[in-house]
Amino acid sequence: MALNRRSFLKAAGLTTLAGLGGHAAMELLAPGALEAAQPAQVGAYPEALTAKRWAMLIDTEKFTSAELYQKCIDACHKTHNVPTIPGKQEVKWLWTERYAGTFPEQQHALVPEKVKHQPFLLLCNHCDDPPCVRVCPTKATFKRADGIVMMDMHRCIGCRYCMAGCPYGARSFNFRDPRPFVENIDEHYPTRMKGVVEKCTFCEDRLAKGQLPACVEVSEGALIFGDLADEDSEVRRILRERYSLRRKPSLGTNPSVFYLI
């Protein structure tokens, strides 16, 4: 593999700064004691997509068919082995909700019929100031430097405080072992175990390998993904040109998901 040694070492150095504990660093060095000339190194993939703050635009005008919604949802749920559990203990990362439920307190009854009955795509808002991260007692959910609100399913104790904290209903709890409810398990992504909370991760695993989120990839241009901190990015250009809404702006969470109207 062609690897730019310098950028790689830089990435490794940054990782250390970002809080990779002395413990991990030491253990990674341990094999060196045996025979090798230089210690093992860790870093990011050179092809990884990076940003200062990831954001998603949902172009509600382009979502004209139920099939397109379903295509995005299926892509997401298949990629991440999201189980299909019937009833009120369901698990979902990406789903649709009616207009009134998507924008409570911002909606009124006299909007065009088309809007009133149109479904809207919902997912984790990857807030700038996420209440779920504030309340989590173990840092199992945390905000990354690039704005992604991440979930560490290994650390979650299943207290569900984040579910009470999330104002957007973005989080699902594994009330039971989800595996029997995943059709065609994708072996490249883990399932979850019972008793942990999960949600959309903006496909951080795909970004790390240079791929766009699964839903964006199949959305036929209806979902736009990019760096909100970069003034020249496509998302910033579109936000300058078109009117957009965010869900529940009065709560001060500052979501990274925008709805183009």
Partner: peptide, 15 residues
């Protein structure tokens, strides 16, 4: 696990 999930660091180069 911690590197990949928590530090977005997924590449390991051995000795």
């Amino acid at each position: 696990r911690d590197l990949a999930v928590r530090d977005n660091t997924r590449l390991y180069v051995n000795q």
